[in-house]
C-alpha cells in the first residue's frame, strides 16, 4: 500500500516539470513586449529607447528563452519566485499574503457546503417525493445553473447594503484580524462559493441515500423495530456517505478554481483575484508563478483524491478491474 502512495507521489514530479514548461512557454508566446505591456501609454511617452532597453536588460529579457526558463526554474526550486513587473516587490511576499486567504475561503466554503449539502440531501431522501424534496431539487437546480457572481452581487445588495449584516467585501478590517473576527468577512463569499457544491452534494446524497435505503439490510433493521431516525442515520446515512465523500474530495480543485470570480466580486484578496489582476495588468512573472501554484494545488488535490479513493476502495491500489465485484 505504501509503495502505491510513493509511486503516485513520485509521478507528481515529471507532471510538475511538464507544467512548468507549458506555463513558461505559454506565457512567452503571448504577443507583445513584457516591458511595454506593464507601462501605461502616458509613461511610455516619456521613455527613451535607451531606458526601455535598460529595463529589458534589468529584467533579463534580453537573454535566450532557454536561459530565462532555467533561471526561472532554478529560482522556483530555491523558493525565489522573482519580482513583480508591476509592483517591483518579491512575488514570494505577494503569494504569502494571497495563498492562505484562498485556502481559508475554500476551506470555510467546503465546511459550509458539506454541512448544508449533506443535510438537504438527507432530508430530500427521507422526504422523497414531498414538497420538501421538490423544493430542494428546484433550489439545487438553481444553485447549479445560476452563475455564482450573480448570487454574489445579490448577496452584497441584500446583506451588506440594505441589511448591513456583513461587510461589502474584503478579507479583514481594521481591528478584525483574528480568524474569528474575520469570519463575518468570510460568510458571504464562502457561502456563495459553496452554492454549486451544496447543490451537487445534495443531489448525490439524495441519490446515494435512496440507493442505500432500498437495500435489504435496511428492511431488516426496520423489521427489528429500530426507530426511523436510527435506521436513517446509523444504517442509511453512514453507508451512503462513502461514495459521497469521493465526490466531495474530487470537487475540491473546482472549489479553488471558483475563487477567481468570487474573490473579485467580494474584493477578497486571494490567489484567484491575484491571477485576474496580474493577467489584466500583464504582470507575467506573477501570472507564471500563480498558474504554477494553482495547477500544482490541483495536482496535489488529485493526488489526495487517489489516496482517499485507495483507502476506501482496495481494488484501486491493487489495480483490480472495477467491474469485478460490488465492493461491499
Amino acid at each position: 500500500m505504501f509503495k502505491y502512495y510513493i509511486t503516485r507521489f513520485a509521478m507528481l514530479i515529471p507532471k510538475l516539470m511538464v507544467i512548468s514548461i507549458i506555463v513558461f512557454i505559454g506565457i512567452q508566446m503571448i504577443p507583445g513586449d513584457p516591458v511595454t505591456r506593464t507601462i501605461s501609454p502616458e509613461v511610455y511617452a516619456h521613455l527613451s529607447p535607451v531606458q526601455l532597453n535598460e529595463l529589458r536588460q534589468e529584467l533579463g529579457l534580453n537573454d535566450s528563452m532557454v536561459v530565462q526558463y532555467l533561471r526561472w526554474l532554478s529560482g522556483l526550486l530555491r523558493g525565489d519566485f522573482g519580482y513583480s513587473l508591476v509592483t517591483g516587490g518579491k512575488i514570494s511576499g505577494i503569494i504569502a499574503s494571497r495563498l492562505p486567504a484562498t485556502f481559508e475561503l475554500a476551506f470555510v466554503s467546503l465546511i459550509f457546503a458539506t454541512i448544508l449539502g449533506l443535510l438537504f440531501g438527507f432530508i430530500s431522501a427521507i422526504k422523497k417525493n414531498t414538497i420538501i424534496d421538490y423544493t430542494n431539487t428546484v433550489l439545487g437546480m438553481i444553485g447549479i445553473s445560476v452563475p455564482p457572481f450573480f448570487f454574489g452581487l445579490l448577496a452584497i445588495l441584500l446583506f451588506s447594503i440594505y441589511l448591513r449584516w456583513f461587510p461589502t467585501g474584503g478579507r479583514m478590517g481594521y481591528g478584525h484580524v483574528t480568524f474569528f473576527a474575520r469570519l463575518k468577512y468570510l460568510v458571504l463569499p464562502a457561502f456563495i462559493l459553496g452554492i454549486s457544491l451544496i447543490a451537487t452534494l445534495m443531489k448525490f446524497t439524495r441519490g446515494s441515500m435512496l440507493d442505500v435505503l432500498s437495500k435489504e439490510y435496511i428492511k431488516v433493521a426496520r423489521s427489528k423495530g429500530l426507530s426511523e431516525i436510527k435506521v436513517n442515520l446509523k444504517h442509511g446515512f453512514r453507508n451512503a456517505l462513502i461514495p459521497i465523500m469521493v465526490v466531495l474530495v474530487m470537487r475540491i480543485p473546482m472549489l479553488v478554481g471558483g475563487t477567481v470570480i468570487i474573490e473579485t466580486v467580494f474584493n477578497y484578496p486571494g490567489m484567484g483575484s491575484l491571477m485576474v489582476s496580474s493577467i489584466s495588468g500583464s504582470d507575467m512573472p506573477v501570472v507564471m508563478i500563480g498558474t504554477f501554484i494553482m495547477t500544482s494545488s490541483v495536482l496535489l488535490a488529485s493526488f489526495f483524491v487517489d489516496v482517499f479513493a485507495a483507502i476506501i476502495d482496495p481494488r484501486i491500489r491493487f489495480g483490480t478491474d472495477a467491474g469485478g465485484g460490488n465492493g461491499k
Binding site: I156, S160, I161, R164, P167, T168, G169, G170, G173, Y174, E263, T264, V265, F266, N267, Y268, P269, S273, S277
Partner: peptide, 20 residues
C-alpha cells in the same frame, strides 16, 4: 485606508453606499 484593489470600482461604490 482600505484597499479595493481586487473588487475595483464596483467594490468602492458598494463601500461608499454602505458608508464605509
Amino acid at each position: 485606508f482600505t484597499s479595493h484593489q481586487v473588487g475595483g470600482a464596483e467594490a468602492i461604490i458598494s463601500d461608499v453606499i454602505a458608508g464605509n
